[in-house]
């Protein structure tokens, strides 16, 4: 295809992506290093006879407007917002480093800082959800593949539901069941014989519930991918393994898993990207008091009357850096493969 033809075909989608993905990223970077101008204050001395003179501080509207017009981006603050208490908190970190004498105490101090708490939850979520999703997806795929032909379609239909249904709705549906008033919540209270056990009161339980939601939501995706992979498994390989006397576990370990390996890599990549964005269950579970992800942290800044755009922008930049770090090994590998092919 000629360059000019390619250009015209690709123009609309490129325009959409540049305008609404690339430029916003630039805008976020700018917003993170510029803070809005504070109002210009003037001291006005008013003297009334008999009472005397009082000085009042008032907003100088004209000066404020003039300042905002002359520097529409705002006040340049450099990395100040990045380093403040709500973000990287370098000052507090340094203090904690000096004050504490063990790693445990240091991390404890760190976990009181909101940004690190959000990052801690996001990373925990990724670390637990990703492997469990792959394991559970693989087990379900093997099990459904072994079901009677007539049951498979139905099994796939029901399996797809947690993945396809709106994440917030899936989250609410689960939350209403495992809440302390819900049927599962009551059952758990009865099982451990503790009537006061409640999701809302315990950070640990809330984290577990969110991770369970993550696995429940994404396992169907892994299942569908692996199930499709199982359909292309060459019969002769399995038969050869059987003739060689491989046990069922050995067949899975040495024939099926290697065959599915590219798919496992693919699911891992998608899972890493998606779990890094984790957000919806925190809304559905009303978990913000116990667990905030990076996405929720930004959402919280953008919410309400006082939209803290600069703060949200700084967290966004840090999140984008996180995505870059997360993706870099994949990108390096793809680049090597690509160079190899050339």
């Amino acid at each position: 295809m000629r360059h000019s033809t390619f250009f015209w075909f690709f123009l609309p989608t490129a325009a959409a992506m540049i305008l609404f993905i690339a430029l916003p990223i630039v805008s976020v970077v700018f917003q993170s290093i510029y803070a809005p101008h504070p109002a210009v204050l003037v001291e006005v001395e008013t003297c009334t006879p008999l009472v005397g003179c009082t000085t009042e501080t008032a907003v100088d509207q004209d000066a404020t407007r003039q300042l905002r017009e002359s520097q529409p981006l705002g006040r340049f603050v450099g990395l100040d917002i990045f380093l403040d208490r709500g973000h990287l908190a370098t000052g507090e970190m340094g203090e904690a480093w000096v004050d504490t004498d063990s790693w445990g105490a240091f991390f404890n101090r760190l976990s009181n800082l909101p940004f690190y708490r959000a990052m801690g939850f996001t990373l925990t979520f990724i670390i637990f959800v990703t492997p469990f999703v792959i394991l559970l997806g693989l087990l379900i795929a093997l099990a459904v593949n072994a079901l009677h032909q007539s049951l498979r379609g139905l099994a796939i239909f029901f399996s797809l539901l947690p993945f396809v249904v709106t994440p917030i709705i899936g989250g609410l549906v689960l939350y209403w069941m495992i809440d302390s008033r819900g049927i599962l919540g009551k059952a758990i209270q009865w099982l451990v014989a503790d009537p006061d056990l409640s999701l809302k009161a315990s950070t640990g339980l809330m984290w577990i519930a969110l991770i369970v939601w993550g696995i429940w939501h994404a396992a169907p995706f892994a299942f569908v991918i692996f199930y499709a992979g199982l359909q292309t498994l060459p019969k002769d390989q399995i038969e050869a393994a059987q003739i060689d006397g491989a046990t069922r576990f050995q067949q899975v370990r040495y024939v099926i898993v290697p065959h599915l390996l590219p798919l496992i890599t693919f699911v891992t990549l998608i899972q890493l990207m998606d779990n890094f964005k984790v957000f919806e269950p925190i809304i559905a579970f009303q978990a913000a008091a116990h667990a905030q992800s990076l996405s929720y942290f930004i959402y919280n800044d953008l919410q309400g009357e006082t939209r803290q755009l600069s703060s949200a922008a700084s967290t966004s930049v840090l999140t984008i850096l996180g995505v870059a770090i997360l993706l870099s090994p994949v990108l390096v590998r793809t680049w090597r493969d690509f160079k190899g092919k050339m």
Partner: peptide, 26 residues
């Protein structure tokens, strides 16, 4: 085409909330 596809993959990994932050002001 390879670079465009990889760029698209990077864009796909962006959490949408970070982009929304960029939209707000404009």
């Amino acid at each position: 085409t390879f670079f465009l596809l990889i760029t698209a993959l990077i864009f796909r990994a962006m959490p949408p909330i970070t982009l929304v932050t960029g939209y707000m002001l404009p």
